[in-house]
Design a protein around this nucleic acid. Structure first.
Length: 569
RNA sequence: GCGCCGGUAGCUCAGGGGAUAGAGCAGGGGACUUCUAAUCCUCAGGUCGCAGGUUCGAAUCCUGCCCGGCGCGCCA
């Protein structure tokens, strides 16, 4: 839109001015930025400084020459040289009106990318089915889901997958624990192994298995009993996990079972394929992957000397399985404790003949959970943990998700449960949601007064001339760019920040500009502005998986206290 | 020891080659005959961990160091 036209204009000017600039060809393509400060125009470019730096000439003079050569255009109001050699551009408001009309036409597709045809798989959460999801999985779920939403919005075909590690030693310990609790529930003597899972939830799971399978499992041959109880417990744990995720607003397209890799012989198959390529060898009774070929400091075991596969061994087959399903690109969402596995998995992809760039690992740093400033200590096997369900009960899914996406993935973060729960008045999520509800309230008000929103083509958008109105339109114009950057950088936190900024810009507009008034034309224009804002705010919230309420009840300080701190918290 | 990630306002964090480094909270002072005051305005608050280097220009890139988190299993 306007950006392309400005770039074309600048390119023309540069081509015209180049001979006198002594600039070397090829000439750089001008890049536009939205200046961070008002007063620096609607758009700005540093292209003169880039050219001057290459040619070794004065940047301000270069900028002046380019400005001088700029063809006149109806949409360009002013261009000037500023600072060390920036060219600042002021445009007419027409482009902002275009943005408004575009939002009206595109609705919830405003800012969305055209279909790319690329199939991307996002695999996330993937916690073992040995019990409930805990707050330790919350950041993964929030980031993974937001990324899936973002990439879908960007135009990709996205599939979300949850990988259940339902095989291996942890599962056996879990199975033995369920078995013991099952027998206990029947009044028999049994004990949870020392290295098993001791939490009360295991007894609950065992009772659920008892309820669904009956008491008959107790008298099966030991091996069969164990397997049935392990799988029964895991199955129920998986159902609980799905239910918890649903409460959190997260759903998956597929749930993949590690055990299925084994059943279908995929692990053996993948390893043989690597062996053919010379990436796998046998030593000390085990089967090793030559990960040192990919920068690892030592080779890694894929099949143990007892014949069972390691986590990594399953991963090899899993990568191959994913690619065989036709995905163009794979995204794994991992906690920082797995960063050491990144090179290995990408190495496996390379060794299997796939471009490592198609395997992308999104890492996030750990969350320190606190409650009233005190660290929350957790151990899943000891059964002392805060479940994700409890977190949702305490702070709400919206507040939890918004808070979890407030920080860059790379940043270790604190999450004080008591604070996020208590922050009903100061939590940014409510600030943003209130902005949305407030707009909805205005639109309701207009409708109640019998004011009809007429087609935007009939609205006189030039009436939106005050500073808060202009600021708001500019903020709306920035939405698609912000979303695109968030998607490219896998940085969903940019969305929560953008939502806060947009809400703030709207609240400012609200304070200074009466929307529903006696002035019919102005009312129409401002209703459209409000409606467009509601749309963009709604999109931003949706992309982070937070609800956009149509109304929020006003929090009256019923105690009538002055200052609102009388209750001490 | 090696690797990855952080260190920016009192606190929690954005910004990751460009102009005068931003926001929220906390703190001081203001604004409700009003479409929701869950709001807005304003003031105050900074050696961008430290030291070098690259560049016309560094919070941003490079090197070294300091502090904190996380890894470096035939665990998952």
């Amino acid at each position: 839109m306007i950006e392309e036209r400005l770039v074309t204009l600048l390119a023309e000017a540069i081509a015209k001015a180049a001979p006198s600039l002594g600039a070397a060809t090829p000439l750089p393509v001008p890049e536009l930025q939205r200046p961070r400060q008002k007063g620096f125009g609607d758009f700005t470019t540093n292209v003169a400084m880039v050219i001057a730096s290459q040619a070794g000439v004065d940047p301000r003079a270069t900028a002046a020459a380019i400005v001088e050569a700029l063809p006149s255009a109806a949409f360009l109001a002013k261009a000037e040289v500023a600072g060390p050699g920036f060219i600042n551009l002021w445009t007419t408001d027409e482009w902002l009106h275009d943005v408004m009309r575009q939002i009206a036409v595109e609705g919830d597709r405003y800012g969305a990318g055209a279909p790319t045809g690329r199939r991307i798989q996002v695999e996330f959460v993937s916690a073992n089915p040995t019990g409930p999801l805990t707050i330790g999985h919350a950041r993964n779920a929030a980031i993974g889901d937001a990324l899936a939403r973002l990439l879908t919005f960007a135009g990709h075909e996205v599939e979300r997958e949850y990988y259940f590690n339902d095989a291996g030693g942890q599962m056996d310990r879990f199975g033995a624990s369920v078995e013991a609790r099952y027998l206990e529930a029947l009044g028999r003597d049994a004990e949870v192994p020392e290295d098993g899972y001791h939490g009360d939830y295991v007894a609950d799971l065992a009772r659920e298995v008892l309820a669904s399978e009956g008491p008959g499992l107790a008298d099966l041959p030991e091996e069969e009993r164990f397997v049935r109880l392990r799988e029964g417990g895991a199955g129920i744990a998986m159902e609980h996990i799905r239910a918890t995720l649903a409460r959190f607003g997260v759903t998956f397209d597929s749930y993949f079972l590690e055990a299925s890799l084994l059943e279908r012989g995929e692990i053996a198959h993948a390893i043989e394929r690597l062996r053919e390529g010379g990436f796998v060898y046998d030593a000390e009774g085990a089967t090793w992957f030559r990960s040192t070929a990919f920068g690892d400091d030592k080779d890694r075991v894929a099949i143990r000397s007892d014949g069972t596969h390691t986590y990594f061994g399953a991963d090899i087959a899993y990568v191959l399985d994913k690619f065989s399903r036709g995905f163009d690109h794979l995204i794994y969402v991992w906690g920082a404790d797995h960063h050491g596995d990144v090179a290995r998995v990408r190495g496996v992809a390379t060794a299997l003949g796939f471009d490592a760039d198609r395997v992308e690992i999104v890492l996030y740093q750990f969350v320190s959970f606190l409650r009233g400033g005190q660290p929350v200590k957790m151990s899943k096997r000891a059964g002392t943990f805060v479940s994700l369900d409890e977190l949702i009960d305490e702070v709400g899914a919206d507040a939890a998700r918004f808070h979890l996406l407030l920080f860059s993935n790379d940043r270790p973060m604190n999450f004080d449960i008591a604070e996020v729960a208590r922050q009903t008045l100061e939590n940014p999520v409510y600030y943003v949601q209130y902005g949305h509800a407030r707009i909805a309230s205005i639109l309701r008000r207009a409708s109640d007064e019998g004011i009809e929103l007429r087609p935007i083509e009939d609205a006189d958008l030039t009436l939106l001339a005050s500073e808060p109105e202009q600021d708001l339109m500019r903020a709306l114009a920035d939405g698609p760019g912000t979303i695109a950057i968030a998607a490219e950088h896998r940085a969903p936190h940019r969305l929560t920040h953008a939502a806060q900024d947009l809400a703030a810009t709207f609240h400012r507009f609200y304070t200074e500009c009466r929307v529903v008034s006696d002035d019919d034309s102005l009312t129409q224009a401002r209703l459209w502005l409000s409606s467009a804002t509601k749309q963009v705010l709604g999109t931003l919230l949706d992309l982070v998986g937070v609800s956009a309420p149509e109304r929020m009840d006003r929090l009256d300080d019923a105690d009538g206290s002055v200052g609102g701190a009388a209750d001490g918290g």
